[in-house]
């Protein structure tokens, strides 16, 4: 796993210093404690905290887009929630013009992963570990969850369990 694209979150918990103002997005109840202590850690800087549902969806996407389109350079974005949601939010933030340096991803423990089906190109959320399998709800392929994570799709790559044995 040392050379895979699976996020090593300890190393990604870095953000450029000196931001002028900060927005914290927390996803789900499990993220509240972490978000609260984060928010209280910014003495003197302007901090907005927005609580959102645990799963990434249209509402969260619209709120992030609105925040980003009003933001000026000097803004920092902190994302607290399940890994699947944090990955999705980061992908949306980068699409909105943010740099990795301006985003602090803080995933809280969660067993769920977003899996991208290499066969029908859809994604689904499943409670599955890397190396285990999950059935694609769209095309019914049995997928093995590979240790490759796309930052763009915010998903683990899944491909047919028997892809290597097929004639």
């Amino acid at each position: 796993m040392g050379t895979t694209s699976v996020p090593r979150w300890d190393e990604e918990r870095r953000i450029a210093g000196g931001g002028r103002y900060v927005t914290v997005l927390s996803f789900g109840d499990a993220a509240l404690d972490r978000a609260r202590s984060l928010v209280s850690s910014f003495g003197g800087r302007r901090v907005d905290w927005i609580r959102l549902p645990e799963e990434w969806g249209d509402t969260a996407a619209q709120i992030l887009e609105r925040q980003a389109s009003a933001a000026r350079v000097g803004w920092r974005l902190m994302l607290v929630g399940p890994e699947a949601t944090v990955l999705a939010a980061r992908s949306a933030a980068v699409a909105a013009g943010l740099l990795d340096d301006e985003i602090l991803p803080l995933p809280v423990d969660s067993g769920t992963r977003t899996v991208y089906c290499a066969h029908c190109h859809s994604t689904h959320v499943a409670d599955v570990a890397v190396g285990q399998s999950s059935t694609c709800p769209t095309c019914a392929s049995g997928l093995v969850v590979h240790h490759h994570v796309s930052r763009l799709h915010a998903a683990y790559l899944g491909f047919a369990v028997d892809a290597e044995e097929r004639p």
Binding site: A71, V73, A96, G97, L99
Partner: peptide, 30 residues
């Protein structure tokens, strides 16, 4: 707006001054 990049070319004094002030305004080096 977020997503802006700053490019400057000029005498060292001007460049250093603007770099320093951009940093204070929260611009990441990138």
């Amino acid at each position: 707006p977020i997503g802006t990049h700053l490019y400057m070319c000029g005498p060292t004094g001007l460049v250093d001054d603007l770099c320093e002030r951009a940093g204070r305004a929260g611009w990441p080096d990138a």
